[in-house]
């Protein structure tokens, strides 16, 4: 099973096929960076994977630009690809598990303390 099918469900496959085609045209080290980006972005995906395509489009565009300018992939993404991915997803208001747990905690506390009538 294809990676994107696994995380997104088949209906988004066409979009991903287009992304992969663009990635295939990149130089080798940019393509390697792309593989890393995919893995780390998936960690920030929501349940449907629908929050990813706009971000992926942006990151892919960034890789294409730098490849065209002859810059190395690590010059744009830095060494901490995971941190970079967290930052771009955060910028898009992505919600991770940790964020969900955080909200859940504060909601539970508010509800239960409210129940004390205090």
């Amino acid at each position: 099973m294809n990676f994107w099918d696994t995380i997104t469900g088949g209906d988004l496959t066409r979009e991903w096929t287009a992304f992969e085609a663009r990635a295939a045209a990149l130089p080798a080290d940019h393509r390697a960076a792309w593989e890393q980006v995919k893995i780390h972005l998936a960690a920030h995906s929501d349940l449907t994977g629908r929050n990813l395509p706009p971000v992926v489009d942006g990151v892919l565009g960034l890789l294409e630009e730098t490849a065209a300018e002859g810059q190395g992939a690590d010059e744009v993404l830095g060494e901490d690809v995971e941190g970079f991915c967290a930052a771009v997803m955060g910028g898009k208001g992505a919600r991770t598990y940790r964020d969900r747990w955080r909200e859940q905690l504060n909601r539970n506390v508010a509800r239960k303390l409210g129940g004390l009538g205090g």
């Binding site: 940790r98 905690l105 506390v109 239960k112 303390l113 004390l116």
Partner: peptide
């Protein structure tokens, strides 16, 4: 006291998860 107990228990659940 009850308010502390509630907060502690919710905190513990969260801390064990992360």
């Amino acid at each position: 006291p009850p308010d502390y107990r509630i907060v502690y228990q919710e905190m513990q659940r969260y801390l064990f998860k992360i």
